[in-house]
Amino acid sequence: MRSIQEIVARRRRQDRWFAVLGVFCTSIGIITLIALLANLLIDGLGHLDWQFLTSFASRRASSAGVLAAVVGSLLVMLVTACVAAPLGIAAGVWLEEYAPKNRVATILEVNIANLAGVPSVIYGLMALSVFVYAFGFGHSILTAALTLAVLILPIVIVATREALRTIPRTIREASYALGATKWETVWHHLLPYSLGGIATGVIIGLSRAIGETAPLVTIGALAFIAFLPDPPVTGEFPFVSFSWLGSDFTVLPIQMFNWVSRPDPAFHHNAAATGVLLIAITLGMNAIAIFVRYRMRKAIQW
């Protein structure tokens, strides 16, 4: 018969072993991430200068830049946000506040959850047949933005619903008891109080969309663009122009993919620099999302 001390010591050794194993497993993920970032930074940071940001793509790696891709990504994101936010918020509000709680609503809910899991290249195929061919939008900024908007729609819908669900029932009842209709309750109370959560969802969705490559390759985005779209502001009446929506475009991940696939290693440095830029933008957007959520939580505590 072993003493109690021995038994305890043996079981504590087990405990320590698992602690060590856990640290090891966790560090694999973290070390990989750090290595990836470090590699990218070493390769790319030296090339990331003003000249790189303000030049078009070029046949010579040293004079090539990401101007068209940066402008393309920004414009596509702008339109994506303008399309996905109203559609997603409206759908989320309808599902959460208006939809009858029956079988049809359940089927709709399950399908929206599934939609978030559909591989993005499938969205590209859908966009190719609908937006490019059926609607005749071509491989334009508009097509790209619509495709990405559909892609992130489930994220916006789910974020909207979750934000609405955190609002206590008593707040809705207070509004209805004062004679507000459903729409007045949504407009004056539910939307303002859930704006932080909704904005977080939209930003998270956009940070996913900005890195998407596959669906945009599918709709035929070009990799070599040496011009900017028409400016949205013009000198003549009516001073705003939407012709840029129909313009050819490229975006950062496509530009990066194009450079990576070239044999000349000088271009690989350009790709790394683009990667640094892309990661910086994504992390920046996520930081904004976290900040918005933090401010929101501080402002309203139910």
Binding site: P168, T170, I171, E173, S175, A177, L178, I300
Partner: peptide, 15 residues
């Protein structure tokens, strides 16, 4: 609800 008002169990002011 326009003609009758209600005060609830827990204070529920709007934020």
């Amino acid at each position: 609800r326009m003609r009758l008002s209600m005060v609830f169990q827990k204070p529920n002011p709007f934020p």
